[in-house]
Design a binder for these strands. Structure first.
Lengths: 367, 367
DNA sequence: CGTTTGGTTGAATCATAAC
DNA sequence: CGTTATGATTCAACCAAAC
């Protein structure tokens, strides 16, 4: 899996997690060699005292040393340094994603502009299940903000418009994304059973970022690698990753995690480019949320099969397209409701995919 | 309707629209005299050329002179000046709302922090009907960002938690608000039938802001008044407004608009309040009034018991003190609300002692 | 085995009046 | 001003145990 790309004198260590401070490491890597950077830096939360829930339990806050800065000036200096090192690494048509909260995102956004990055969108991750405001003193902090920017104004950045549109019921993707926070089995635990990292991001978020703004084979670098969500999703989607992480415990967890990830096959990774492909339902969301996996086979009541692709389309023996199109073709029918036609296997039984849609709808209703 | 508030030498011109540059005007008004500022400054859009829809019609872009700045530095200087003038105007417990897009909001947010404002929330206005991205080159820009900040860290800002919770079907209000953009009858037209202002904000947005973060009678200032949405909603909700606007055409439209607005009656303006705003009642008063008798046993939901003493304290097996102290001790909790924790028996049923406090408060209101 | 219930938790700048 | 005491406050998701 590990390989390198030679860029003149220095090699680019692909699909590895580099130990060290991200600024120093980035400065040591060859310039103009990376297609996309995804960065989830410390938020500088500035929490004051303890916080208890109404039931008197204590909230496990982010109080790690790596999130502490002495002042806005110190945080700005840090931001300036890592962003300029990142810019140097990007190819001319490369792009960057950063994520943050109101504590730090305004400073990151301003510095991106100061350094000549060109903001393409700010994107709101609307959390379907945020932590409430326990004291009733403010609004529930229910979102985080991502900024997507190209290296320079006028850059020919990558944007898979049709793939994201397919993920969004055939309607063009908006700048607000409703996704659950990372919990349950996806949330990595340490040996003691506690969360391995206080701020692990959901794979669904990275799925959308990487699918939408890179091509297969692109190099994706994450300078604040943590537990390696970026690397795991990049590997699934057939992209090359480079992680930088200075905490040994995080590196260890990330390495093991990514080793267990299987790359989806090429058919599954291919995204829609046809303007005709306009699925009328958000089948792609099931894939994005991990309810169905790219490469997984769906079955019809009469035994026809088709394979799930990462952008929410299907591929059969001699046909590809939406769940409805593929179903109609296999049945020789003018139309077909893919939601009731296609089934997946769970515990030996065949279950219609419509069941999964109902689950998603239930979650969406709650917003 | 027009009136003034004297603050020493200079009068505060309430419910008027002041002609002039907002920085100069704000500097001329008395300091620490305003409860809330709502600011919708120029976004510095940096548009590059005309944009046409797929049907070749031309998009009517924001290309007004007031939105043009020569550089980020010029925009930052402008932001610094109007924000510092605004901060001077705010009462110690005052607060500010600003709204912007990714073009300017990061610079505003950073400058708010630089000047010592304390960010309380960033709020996403998620547009239910945004303009699509006609070129398919980016995500649909479907939201704008508001920042809510108090004048200083530690300020006792106004937040009508219960009112916003009621607006949200009984669930606490989140930081993402889904509201339609301003269209239809609400969208003001000029004499030629064109939109009177390119960026008129919906009244629903200001309704939520003003209802949630001011009290009736508070002074709300808008330094970029435009067509006066802030003034119109402030008047409806029984708040005093001050508008500053340098364009005569906007002032004229705003004045006429607000004259036609009727204030809601007092009952409609009153909002749900929290228990915190209710007068404090000493537990001993219940004993004093014979609602509970010394020697009577109180019971917790989980079966703990304590005895009422004549001085309004409780005594348990190995602890005595206030209803809160004894409850906290018996539960091993850092704190405990004795009013909801302790119950007395009436007709065989367990009733929380908070019911008795409500009776006392009802009697107090009648006097 | 399916369903219900109870417990836990998540990037959080989370109190205030009285003394 | 600091200290002490009162007392207000939660939503969705997941999981394990109970039924």
């Amino acid at each position: 899996m590990t390989k390198t790309k030679d860029r003149g004198a220095v090699a680019l260590p692909l699909n590895t997690i580099i130990d060290g401070d991200c600024i120093e490491v980035m400065r040591s890597l060859p310039e103009a060699s990376v297609d996309l950077i995804f960065a989830d830096p410390p938020y500088n939360l500035q929490l004051r005292g303890d916080l208890h829930r109404p039931d008197n339990s204590l909230v496990d806050a982010v109080d790690d040393a790596w999130d502490q800065f002495s002042s806005f000036e110190a945080y700005d200096r840090f931001t300036r340094d890592w962003l300029s090192a990142a810019k140097r690494l990007l190819k001319p048509n490369g792009a960057i994603w950063v994520i943050g909260s109101y504590h730090n995102v305004f400073r990151m956004g301003a510095e991106l502009q100061n350094q000549g990055f060109w903001i393409l969108n700010d994107v709101v991750w609307r959390k379907s299940n945020p932590m409430p405001n326990f004291r009733g003193k403010r609004l529930t902090n229910a979102h985080e903000t991502l900024i997507w920017a190209s290296r320079d104004e006028g850059a020919k950045y990558t944007f898979n418009y049709e793939a994201l549109k397919a993920l969004n019921e055939g309607i063009q993707m908006r700048s607000d994304w409703v996704l659950p926070i990372c919990t349950g089995h996806e949330r990595l635990k340490d040996d003691a059973g506690d969360k391995a990292h206080p701020t692990q991001k959901p794979e669904s978020l990275l799925h959308r970022v990487i699918l939408g703004t890179t091509n297969a084979g692109d190099v994706v670098l994450d300078p604040f690698f943590g537990t390696g969500t970026t690397g795991a999703v990049a590997k699934m989607l057939g992209r090359e990753y480079i992680g930088i992480e200075r905490e040994e415990a995080y590196r260890k967890v990330a390495k093991k995690r990514i080793e267990n990830v299987r790359k989806f096959d090429s058919d599954s990774i291919a995204v829609s480019t046809s303007k005709r492909a306009e699925p009328r339902v958000a089948f792609g969301v099931l894939v994005e949320r991990g309810m169905l996996r790219p490469g997984e086979m769906l079955v019809s009541p009469r035994g026809k099969t088709a394979k799930v692709r990462a952008d929410g389309t299907l591929i059969g023996d001699d046909v590809k397209g939406s769940i409805h199109q593929v179903g109609a073709h296999l049945e020789g029918a003018p139309s077909c409701n893919g939601w009731t036609y296609w089934h997946f296997k769970r515990d030996g039984k065949q279950v219609p995919i419509d069941l999964l849609r109902q689950q998603v709808r239930a979650e969406m209703r709650e917003n």
